[in-house]
C-alpha cells in the first residue's frame, strides 16, 4: 500500500499545483493549459496579430501561407509557446538563407475586463463634445449610473483613447522586440 499512497498523494498534489500555478507567480495569463479553465474569460478573447519581416525592409508576413490554421488560431489566442516556436521556426528558416533575420510582431489582445467596460465597446465618437463617448449612453454596463459617472468610474481623468489603450488592450509581445532573439530579450 506504500507506493500506492505515495502515488495517490503525488497525483493529487500535481492536480492541485498545476492549475494553481496559473493563479500564482508570473504565469502567462494566455497559457491556460492544464488549469481546467473551461469557458474562462480569457478564452472569450481574441488578439489582432501581425508579423513583419524586418530583415531588410518591413514586409508583412502572411501567416496563412506559413502555418496550419490551428496554429494561427493559437497565436491569435496569444499562446506563448506557440508564438515563441513560430518565431524560432521562421527565424531559423530565414537564417538558413544566410541573412541575420529580424522578426517583429504587432500583437494586441483584449483584456478580460474589456468585456464589462463601456469604454471597450463601440466607437469613441463624442457627438455632443462633452468628453464622454456616445457609446456610454444606454450601455448596459452603465445601468443605474449617468454616462458621465460611468465614464469617470472606468477612466478617471484619462482621455477616452488613453483609457481604451490602458484598460482594454494588452500586448503579450512587446511591439519593437526582435523575435529572432531569445524570448528573455524580447523587451
Amino acid at each position: 500500500m506504500g507506493w500506492k499512497s505515495a502515488f495517490i498523494a503525488a497525483y493529487v498534489v500535481l492536480q492541485v499545483a498545476l492549475p494553481l500555478r496559473y493563479y500564482l507567480g508570473d504565469h502567462d495569463p494566455f497559457d491556460e493549459r492544464f488549469a481546467w479553465r473551461m469557458f474562462s474569460p480569457v478564452r472569450a478573447l481574441d488578439c489582432d496579430v501581425a508579423f513583419f519581416d524586418e530583415t531588410h525592409e518591413s514586409k508583412p508576413i502572411e501567416l496563412r501561407k506559413q502555418l496550419h490554421a490551428v496554429w494561427i488560431n493559437l497565436i491569435k489566442r496569444a499562446r506563448p509557446a506557440v508564438v515563441q516556436s513560430f518565431a524560432r521556426h521562421w527565424c531559423d528558416g530565414r537564417a538558413a538563407d544566410g541573412v541575420t533575420p529580424v522578426l517583429r510582431a504587432d500583437m494586441v489582445c483584449q483584456t478580460p475586463e474589456s468585456l464589462r467596460l463601456a469604454i471597450c465597446g463601440g466607437s469613441l465618437a463624442d457627438g455632443d463634445a462633452d468628453g464622454v463617448p456616445d457609446a456610454f449612453r444606454g450601455a448596459a454596463v452603465c445601468e443605474g449610473r449617468t454616462p458621465e459617472a460611468c465614464f469617470r468610474d472606468e477612466c478617471g481623468e484619462r482621455s477616452p483613447s488613453d483609457c481604451r489603450e490602458a484598460r482594454c488592450k494588452v500586448r503579450p509581445v512587446p511591439r519593437g522586440a526582435n523575435l529572432c532573439l531569445p524570448p528573455e530579450q524580447w523587451t
Partner: peptide, 16 residues
Amino acid sequence: WGTFTKLHAVWLDGST
C-alpha cells in the same frame, strides 16, 4: 477548478 475559473467579475456579471 472550473468553478474557481469563474469566480471572476467578468464571468459573474454574465459578460463572458
